[in-house]
Design a protein around this nucleic acid. Structure first.
Lengths: 210, 210
DNA sequence: ACAGAATCTGCACTCAGTAAAATATTGCAT
DNA sequence: ATGCAATATTTTACTGAGTGCAGATTCTGT
């Protein structure tokens, strides 16, 4: 089965044990495309770059490009919800121990922390993201499917008649914090995870901010 | 000057006084396109409808379609930030009287309440929105420009070193509430404005929801 | 080495959105 | 009412994203 890949671009350097040549080439190919996309966008801007150009620099056909990435932007970002269901499942699981609120926070924090890209690319990506606002909204996942799955999972845990709507609100606020963390991490050039912690502190402290 | 229209589709019936034939036709044309878009999407689904088809049913050329709407989706929704700057300006103004927090709430509420579409279309639109999740994210404005302008305006009012980041967080939470209100209004079939009020109540009441 | 599966590629296609120039319509001044 | 300027529409032609398909290649297990 061959699904469009919207997952994470992993480094391969050391962690290639027992993966098979096929899987290894797939990863190399993905990194090549991701890198090519970042470099070209950095050089010519988001609108100055065609998929054809990216594919060419990465040494693949444009058709292959779309076998790996669902859109031009996804190749640039190189990251999107590693698997909608898994996140929801993790949320359900954590909620048993930590309770709904803390579980939600933990899941959010985990979801953004997992970004093991090549160190050289990280800098380039940061620079590109800063110059192309269009990419922000995508990276913070306005992706409907994840949100609805999370709401669903959370609603099961929360009890009461209005569980559904409280879950909606909670998830939306969670995303709001995440988006803010994203912006902060970009503008100050700090790690996304620590930015998240900071914003969360601010959120807890801030009374009457909205 | 002729800008792509991303504003509101207004009813023309009674409020046509002294608008000139030119402006009037413009409105008729927009409503025709908006209606055609809704009807066709309702019939064939979002992906089953081309701009060409919409334009044809509305009796205009496809090029004219894009003179009025920046994307296919915007014609379906028929609403988007009536003018990025104006909202920010309104925010600045309100903040003087009401203070930043209340001003932000008021602006948000105003921005969504102004939806004076034809009553017949409202029902159709509700139905279409319920079936096409892709449209949700658009209607709640992931539009970067509005957000940044609002953050900027709010940051001026807020004082202190971290004004910028507090403003970001506040605006993001505001949008979170709005998005939730949107979802609630869809799922329960109630007015967007009242949904907003309800969610806001819940937000104020809810402690430890996130 | 061989069969079968996974992946890549080229080709043809649809459709969104833009550009530019020609044409039509409206507003206004006379 | 008539002609001129501004504004809106159309036609035509184009770029580029994304998909479907069929055939070639490359990997995997045996």
């Amino acid at each position: 089965m061959w699904r469009t890949y919207d997952g994470l671009v992993n480094e391969m350097s050391d962690t290639d044990q027992g993966l098979g040549l096929r899987e290894l080439k797939k990863r190399q190919s993905r990194i090549a495309m991701h890198r090519a996309a970042l470099e070209l966008v950095s050089e010519h801007g988001l609108n100055g770059v065609t998929v054809e150009a990216i594919a060419h620099r990465a040494g693949v056909s444009t058709r292959t490009f779309f076998n790996h990435w669902s859109t031009k932007e996804s190749a640039i970002i190189g990251v999107l919800s590693a698997g909608d269901d898994e996140i929801a499942e993790r949320l359900r699981h954590l909620a048993e121990d930590q309770g709904p609120q803390q579980a939600l926070r933990t899941v959010m924090r985990e979801a953004i922390s997992s970004a093991p890209i090549d160190a050289g690319l990280r800098e380039l990506k940061k620079q590109v993201m800063a110059k192309e606002p269009r990419l922000h909204s995508l990276s913070t996942g306005n992706l409907h499917s994840v949100q609805t799955e999370m709401v669903e999972a959370l609603a099961e845990v929360l009890e009461g008649e209005d569980a559904q709507e409280r879950a909606m609100l909670a998830v939306q606020i969670g995303f709001a914090v995440t988006r803010t963390a994203f912006a902060v991490s970009m503008s100050r050039g700090i790690d996304l995870g620590t930015a998240f912690d900071e914003v969360l502190d601010r959120y807890d402290a801030a009374d009457g901010i909205f």
